[in-house]
């Protein structure tokens, strides 16, 4: 009698603990969870090739790539700087004007984003003396020379998106509108270090940011 009731109680205990476990770790996928089903073990799946999520049709070429319409087969000129970086000296297909209005809010946003993602190498003023460079990474070119002061905005956008030289692209981390915000802040930094030699940014009074990805919420 005693023995059987003990078994019954143990069985009940196992049952209730199983309940709790099921509730805590439910058989559903959440970001970064492991999957037994997919061969590579990842629950988060890549989109099949060619799929465009609703609201993410990136048809505005100048906004999403920083490149001009209709310029193809371009040949850029490059040279090597003091740190051994290959640097471009001509920018034939990069757009010259910001595709969105440059407002104070945009530059402030750019400053915040710059101080997260760019400052680590490019340094607080864009000299290329960030902490990672002091730890041994190859020094990136400074923003404060004639080559980059005269470089069109589309070039900076393209470098953030696709990387350049030893810098990886940041498209995964920084959304298109934020990339333009960072470019605007780089222009502000350049002006701050050379106020007499550069035209200041034209600040738009238009406070309404362009609705860049129709339907999407990014």
């Amino acid at each position: 009698m005693l023995r059987s009731s003990f078994l019954l109680i143990s069985a009940l205990l196992i049952f209730t603990s199983a309940c709790r476990y099921d509730m805590q770790d439910q058989p559903k996928y959440k970001p970064y969870k492991k999957s037994e089903f997919f061969a590579d073990g990842r629950a988060s799946r890549d989109l099949p090739a060619g799929v465009v999520p609703r609201g993410f049709l990136r048809d505005d070429k100048s906004f999403f790539t920083g490149k001009k319409e209709g310029v193809t087969n371009v040949q850029v000129q490059t040279t090597t700087d003091a740190s051994g970086n290959t640097v471009v000296t001509s920018f034939p297909d990069a757009i010259e004007e910001f595709p969105i209005p440059v407002t104070k809010e945009l530059i402030d946003r750019g400053q915040e984003r710059y101080n997260i993602y760019c400052i680590v190498c490019h340094g607080p003023t864009g000299n290329g003396d960030g902490m990672i460079v002091r730890r041994g990474f190859v020094r990136p070119p400074t923003y404060h020379d004639d080559r980059l002061r005269n470089a069109p905005v589309g070039h900076f956008y393209d470098v953030i998106t696709n990387g350049w030289g030893r810098m990886n692209g940041y498209a995964e981390k920084i959304q298109p509108a934020d990339r333009w915000a960072i470019v605007a802040y780089i222009r502000a930094l350049q002006y701050s270090q050379n106020p007499n030699g550069m035209k200041p940014l034209v600040i738009s009074e238009n406070k309404v940011a362009k609705n860049v990805e129709k339907g999407g919420n990014r």
Partner: peptide, 15 residues
Amino acid sequence: GMPSTQTCMNCHSQI
């Protein structure tokens, strides 16, 4: 968000 391995390699490709 957990960083992708590329995030590590942004710096550790060289350092």
